[in-house]
Computed example of a mutant assay.
Amino acid sequence: MATWDDVRERALALPETSESTVGAEAYRGFSVRDKAFAWERPLRTRDLAELGDRAPRGVVLAVRVADEGAKHALIADDPAVYFTTSHFDGYPAVLIRLEELDPAELDEILVEAWISRAPKRVVKEFLGD
């Protein structure tokens, strides 16, 4: 089970990452060079109605992914952890039931999200290529 403290620790360990608030609701989030790659995403009334009994009760983490294909692959691979709502249709981001996510998988998903937003030079330095 991953926690928000795990997210914060791992996200801030990535190069050039900063923590800030996101959106008018001032949710917590992480950016690389002012490009958000992971943020808290409480479910809205429309999301709750759409998800019904499948709506998670705990913290929901949203992360950027490479594209819609990556999003749907994650959801198909583990729908108990990954999901989406119609709000994110056509947008390269996936929602995560944080309390269902293995902390080891959190590292991988945050790095991939960070890579999707970080400048290529910074990614090359980070990966050692």
Rank of each mutant, 00 (worst) to 15 (best):
A2D: 08
A2L: 06
W4E: 12
W4S: 03
R8W: 06
R8H: 06
R8A: 04
E9V: 15
E9L: 12
A13M: 11
S18F: 05
E19A: 13
R28E: 15
F30L: 09
S31R: 12
S31F: 05
R33C: 05
R33Q: 10
D34T: 09
D34K: 13
A36D: 07
F37P: 01
A38M: 03
W39L: 14
L43V: 05
A49V: 14
A55L: 02
P56Y: 07
R57D: 10
G58H: 05
V60D: 03
R64V: 10
A66V: 15
A66R: 15
D67P: 02
D77V: 09
D78Q: 13
D78P: 00
Y82G: 04
T85G: 03
S86W: 09
S86C: 05
F88P: 00
Y91I: 12
A93Q: 06
V94A: 01
L95P: 00
I96C: 00
L101G: 02
D102T: 06
D102N: 11
E105Y: 03
I109D: 01
I109A: 02
I115K: 14
S116T: 12
S116L: 11
R117P: 00
R117V: 06
R117M: 09
A118D: 05
P119G: 08
K124H: 13
E125H: 04
E125Y: 00
L127Q: 12
G128T: 10
